[in-house]
Design a protein around this nucleic acid. Structure first.
Lengths: 227, 227
DNA sequence: TGGTATTTGTCCGTATGTATG
DNA sequence: TCATACATACGGACAAATACC
């Protein structure tokens, strides 16, 4: 039978968890340099090796990045985000699009049901920015912002986390021609229709628009591949 | 300008990647005890400290588990799985159900489009086992197996990985009453209808059944909460 | 351009507690 | 109970890379 071991969590693990909490709570936002080892040693009350091992664990996980002579920097907010992105890297464009569809459709549905007035206003602003975008690059940025605003209105933290990682992956490959084409949009009117459906609180309609839109992207990706 | 970054990735990282590959390739399946340190030292040609650090990194990530005096065991197959499960633990049941819906609906759609004959046969076997299950526990097992067979037929590796983690989380909480109720199924006929839709290659129908089924679960979870 | 301070990387040894046989 | 091996934590010393004046 299973015995429950009253395992005393190791010091390293405790420190590692504290660091993780500091990152996730945005006390140390992504991109910032965390305090030097000497300082953290005093703050946590542990020796250098113990602290270093905790940091090392996060470096391997992808949350932190150390630069000799410079410092240690926050690279990502969650482990899930990093591992999800790594997984996406080893996948085909078609697979990624299908996952994007799954997440985005569900989120659009929920957003239509749950969005608050503030979120609705934010979505409208993003839509406007999208329409007024002059060049392809700024359009891609505005496009991602709009989609993100919609996902956020779903009030589902997991979907938000997954989509954020996915969007970052797409953004990273935005310089690629394929990525560009995929964002210059299947149907320019889809955005407006989607937002309208959400505003009218019609989940089924919103979901259908997302499906149609991404289905179009899938076809484009397909023809791109066979070219 | 960029200086040539020679691939002088640290020795630890190289070993860690090799170990990860061995786990993901199922050379070391989940649950097995990996060879003792001395053996691995020779196999990889590195010092003990280097090897130990690589192992520690994976222990922290959740891929491995060390037991003093016993050995090191494989705990999970992918980092994505572990981090996804951790994320699910800190979420509400409703959120989890919504993510499950997103994944399962997409997978059911794709499975209806893409399933091979072998996969169809396997799904049928799982369905039969589901119907013949005597007690609640064996039904839950067969249920998960059936769903997994369907997801596998989607031919989308990411969806498969995500759902596998999700299913494990549900399975872990199967002893919980809530978890039990959620698996005793909303509608006993839903399984047959879903499989039939997939066999007939009707993606829209399959997706609709999944949606209806999980919608029912959401209502049950809701009433359970307000009790 | 160069020298100095800062910061992380690596190695060493030691002490203490714990699991195993 | 004792002996051995291992895990853990600490402290120090020096090297290497970077930042700053």
């Amino acid at each position: 039978m299973d015995v429950i071991k009253a395992k005393r969590s190791s010091l390293v693990e405790q420190i590692a968890l504290q660091i993780e909490a500091l990152i996730e709570s945005k006390t140390w936002p992504v991109g910032t340099r965390i305090p030097p080892e000497m300082e953290l040693m005093e703050q946590f009350g542990v020796s250098r090796n113990t602290l270093r091992e905790a940091i090392r664990a996060h470096v391997y996980a992808g949350l932190l990045q150390t630069k000799q002579g410079s410092g240690t920097y926050v690279r990502a907010k969650t482990v899930l985000g990093v591992s999800f992105q790594k997984r996406l890297e080893t996948s085909t464009l078609l697979e990624t699009l299908e996952v994007r569809h799954a997440i985005e459709r569900e989120a659009a549905w929920l957003a239509a049901e749950r969005h608050t007035e503030d979120e609705a206003a934010h979505i409208q602003i993003c839509l406007k920015a999208c329409k007024e975008a002059s060049d392809l690059y700024s359009f891609a940025e505005a496009d991602i912002a709009l989609h993100h605003a919609i996902i956020a209105a779903s009030h589902n933290g997991i979907l938000i986390d997954l989509y954020t990682s996915l969007a970052e992956s797409l953004r990273a490959s935005v310089h690629d021609l394929t990525g560009m084409n995929l964002h210059t949009e299947a149907d320019p009117g889809a955005h407006e229709a989607l937002v309208q459906a959400i505003m009218e609180r019609q989940p089924a309609k919103a979901a259908a628009i997302v499906s149609q839109d991404i289905d179009c992207l899938k076809k484009m990706a397909n023809s791109e591949e066979n070219r």
